[in-house]
Amino acid sequence: MTMSVTHNDVMVGVGLRHPNFTDILTQTKQVDFVEVHSENFFGKGGAALSVLTQVREMYPVSLHSTSMGLGSKQNIPMHYLACLKALTEKINPFLMSEHACFTWGQQQGQLIHSGDLLPIAHTQQTLAKMSEQVDKVQNFLGRQLIIENVSAYIKFDESYLSEADFLAQLCQRTGAKVLLDINNIAVNSVNFEGGNIQQSVADYINELPIESVAQIHLAGCTEPLAGEMTIDDHACPVSDDVWQGYKQAIARFGPVPTLIEWDSDLPKWSVLVDEAQKARDIAHAVLARKSK
């Protein structure tokens, strides 16, 4: 499927989750694309894959992987990549993304998967290993990867590069692009940088080269209790700070595909569609101002 996109058109999509399968297949088209988590469709067949195949006939699909762990020091196992490649060939996604995190490791000599997006040390050593893995996966899949900044709950003392600088260098080395999750910057700002979210987001955005960003994620999370860390639960509407950051991102990076991500306490489909419309309106307003 090809989409003709005029210069100022921003494709706005929503994360498609199980409770909305009926909505997406039975309602008229209200979003430009959908994004799903690749691993949820690794089965060889069955109902979920059939849903996705039907959705693909109606919408461009972005495959967002959650387990690949491109920043792992352990090599990504071939069985994982084979599953992902099979799905990629079935769905022919218009975007393929992952996170700048690690997931694979060893415990007592056995391979384990963390089941979580664990943070990486932002060092030249990690960058070298991760560039190698990104190259390998891009070659294996025959596709460009878009790599997302992550929310974190610990920091490594070893890090001396900023995450934005790390991602910019990674893209330069591998030809990959950045998936900018503005809420993840906000979460890390609260957890590690004193919580001046707007400043953290602005700094992050300005550190990324203009042509490096290929997708934006917008999500919201529950306010933490006093003294607790913010946990990125994707359970809330996008916050005002994140919308503010989105304006800056569109102003700097132009009309990049934008996704509303909501995973826990999922609202009605119409609420997701409304959030997507809000993103579209904001992007249009920023782009209109820019082109004047």
Binding site: S72, K73, Q74, F102, G105, Q106, Q107, I112, S114, D116, L118, P119, I120, A121, A152, Y153, I154, K155, F156, E158, N191, E228, M229, I231
Partner: peptide, 30 residues
């Protein structure tokens, strides 16, 4: 460092948490 973080998350004896060198609130979230 990745091995150490995995160990801090998986080995959840209380002494391991105190000795792992990571922020305990963060490790508990993981």
């Amino acid at each position: 460092e990745q091995h150490l973080l995995l160990e801090a998350i998986w080995n959840d004896e209380s002494s391991a948490l105190a000795q792992c060198g990571f922020n305990t609130q963060g490790i508990n979230i993981y």
